[in-house]
C-alpha cells in the first residue's frame, strides 16, 4: 500500500501515464486520501499551466543570422 509520501514522489509518473500496477495503486490511494487528491490535482494544474505559459527563450533572427554567418565562414 502506497503512503502519501510515495504518492507525492510518484505523482508525475502517474500523470505521465504509469504502468498498470502503479496506476491501480495510485487510484486506490487517491480514492481514499483527499490530501493526495489535492496534491495530484495541483501538480497537474502546475504542469498544464507551465506548459502553456512557459516562455522558452528562442533565438532571435539577428542571432540566428550571426550563427549562419559563422557556419559559412567555417565551411
Amino acid at each position: 500500500m502506497l503512503k502519501c509520501k510515495d504518492v507525492s514522489q510518484r505523482a508525475s509518473e502517474y500523470l505521465d501515464g504509469a504502468d498498470r500496477p502503479l496506476k491501480w495503486q495510485m487510484r486506490l490511494h487517491l480514492a481514499m486520501c483527499s490530501n493526495c487528491r489535492r496534491f495530484v490535482r495541483h501538480l497537474a494544474l502546475t504542469r498544464d499551466l507551465a506548459s502553456k505559459v512557459g516562455d522558452v527563450e528562442s533565438c532571435s533572427q539577428s542571432q540566428s543570422r550571426k550563427i549562419v554567418q559563422k557556419l559559412r565562414n567555417k565551411s
Partner: peptide, 18 residues
Amino acid sequence: SDEAYTIMVERYHSLMVA
C-alpha cells in the same frame, strides 16, 4: 539557402543549447 538555415536556427537553436 541562408534564409532556410536562419529559420532552422531560429526554430531549434535554443532547444539545442538547453
